[in-house]
Design a protein around this nucleic acid. Sequence first.
DNA 1: ACCTCGACCTGCAAGC
DNA 2: TGCTTGCAGGTCGAGG
Length: 289
Amino acid sequence: MPELPEVETVRRGLAPAMEGKRIDKVEVRRKDLRWPFQKDFAARLAGQTVTSLGRRAKYLLIDLSSGDVLLVHLGMSGSFRVGTETPGDFHHPRSKASAHDHVVFHMSSGTVITFNDPRRFGSMKIVARAKLDEEPALSILGPEPLGNEFGADVLAKACSGRKTSLKSALSDQKTVAGLGNIYVCEALHRSHLSPKRRASTIADRKGAGNARAEALADAIKTVLNDAIKAGGSSLRDHRQTDGELGYFQHSFRVYDRAGEPCPTPRCPGKIRRIVQGTRSTFYCPVCQK
DNA sequence: ACCTCGACCTGCAAGC
DNA sequence: TGCTTGCAGGTCGAGG
């Protein structure tokens, strides 16, 4: 499901239910998600107050009063719901328990926060705040695209010398952190760059300035900000934490629109679907060069 | 070092 | 209706 805008939407949805609140109890309903839960996972969370909710790329960072951080990744199908009833609780038969409600946080406020993840590509791990930098998953990440440090120069440098396609370079979390299949396709369309071009060609043209990298960096920031404003994208079953749908999917220009006319003004092209690396790419062969 | 590909897991839609 | 197939928003590790 979730790329940076969806994870940011989840962060904002969880904040009022978690920040400054105490976790009474955590129910872990299976032994693993993507990996086995740490020993004493639930016990280490119980009694902690959530001091703040942060995000790094597609990771949610839940800061605790103990000095630990709960690191959460939603994988492909992870989501959180905020409610007041335990799913499947005998006393609340109207609250449907899903077979895929794997972790339930009971807050002292009475709020119940449920993590659901059918495919179980998601993960949760407790890490000491002081050692967060050493966490392998985080230390390999490239720049945060909405942060001050990100721009055309940084992007050009990260693509410099790379023979792989621009699509694949942007999907690589070391290049820029937080993009996935949808927003890579969208950013490329908005900057009129072909997903098939070599990544290095946005960077390595001597004397050509950085026009391509500028356009691409701008498109990345714009599309991510617009998607966050819209509450992310809802495909299949993804919802915001309050059950509302995001609605940025209506603003997709190419993703999942094979056969439709290109939305670029006056462009006569039709959106095509191709496969790059094993994943679908959607683009306009006419205006994306 | 870089790159590509298959694996992980479930559900759903389309096709027969 | 029921079966099979292919596809899905992400990593990660093996192998070239």
